[in-house]
Amino acid sequence: MSDPRTLLEREIGAAQVSSLGALPLAEPRDEEQLCALLRLATREHLCVLPLGFGTKLAWRASSVADFALTTRALSGIVEYEPDEGVITARAGTTLAHLRARTAAERHWLTPFVAREERTSLGGAISAGQSGLDRLRFGPLRHHVLGLRVALGDGTVVKSGGRLVKNVTGYDMHRLYTGAHGSLCVVLEASLRLFSAPRRYAWLQVPGEGREWLEAAWRGAIRPLILALGRVENGWELGVLLGGAEEVVAEELALVQHAATLEGEAALTAARTFANTHTPEGACTRLECLPTGLGELLSRARGRCLVLPGVVTAQIEGAPPAAERPQRTLDRRIKQALDPHGVLAEVG
C-alpha cells in the first residue's frame, strides 16, 4: 500500500497537498475533489481529520488520523437575499467575509468570535463555536438553518434549508454542529441573520462588572456583546451596546457611563477584546449556571473568555486527561453515519 501523501498527490495533484505538522494536508479545490478524497480514504482505510483553518483543532483532544483535509478553498457566498434575512455560504468562507457582506445590508451575523479572518464558517459550525454575542442571540446551533455535508464515504446529504422556520425531517444539522468533523465534512451552511443596530457603543470596564451583568440579565440593558476577559489583576468586561439611537442613549444613561467608542471604532474595539481574551491553541470549556459565575471566575487561570447566561468559559490549557467517557449513543450515531470510521474521532 502506498503512503497517504502519495495517494493524495495522485488523486488531486502535489500542488494541493501540504503539511500540517507530521500529517499530509489535502486542500481540495471543490466539492467533487473533496468527495473523491473521502472515497479514496474509504477504499484505502485511511482516517481523515477535517478542518477549516485549523484554529480550533486543539479544542478537541488528540485525534489520530492519516491525513488532514481542509475545506478552506471551498469558499464563497452561495445565496444572500438581504430581504430574506438568511445567508448560505460554502464552508471555507471566513466569518470576516460574511460579516462584512451582511453588515453592508444592515444585518448582524452571529456568532461574533475572535479572529474571524481565520475562522471559516464550516470550522465554526463543526466546533459549535458560540460568540461573544451569545447572551443576546443564543448559541450558534440555534441559527444554523440547514447544512449540506459530505459523509465519510463521500456521499453528499442535506438537512434543514434556507428558511427561518422549518421542521421538515430530522434536524441532522443539530448532530453535525459541534461534532468536530467526526460525523461529516460541512460543505455549505445557511445561517439566520439579525437586524444590525443603527448605533453602536463600546465600553470596556475594569472588574467583574457584576452590576452590568445583573442589568443585562434583568433586561435593563440588551447588549449585543457581553463578555468577561481575564487581565493581570482580575477581570475586565467588554460591552457592545446596540440599537436605535434613543435605546442606546437610554442604556448609557442607565449605566451612568459614557461610551468610549462609537460606530465602526466600537466594532473594532469589540474585535480586539475578543482577540485578546479568546485562548489560542489548547482550550478547555467550563460551564455553570448564572448563579455559579463567582465560583467559576475564581477557578479561572491564564487567558480566559467568559460568556454570561448559562455561563461558558473558554480557558487556556488542554482539557483534563480524565475526559468524560463518550456516551454509548454518541458512538452508535458515529457508527451509523460513518460506518467505515473514515472521519477522525473526537479524542
Binding site: Y170, R174, L175, E287, L307, V311, T312
Partner: peptide, 14 residues
C-alpha cells in the same frame, strides 16, 4: 449552554 458531546437534545427535539 453547549452540549457535552453530540447535541442529542437538539436532535431529539422535533
Amino acid at each position: 449552554a453547549e452540549p457535552e458531546g453530540l447535541d442529542l437534545v437538539g436532535f431529539f427535539t422535533g
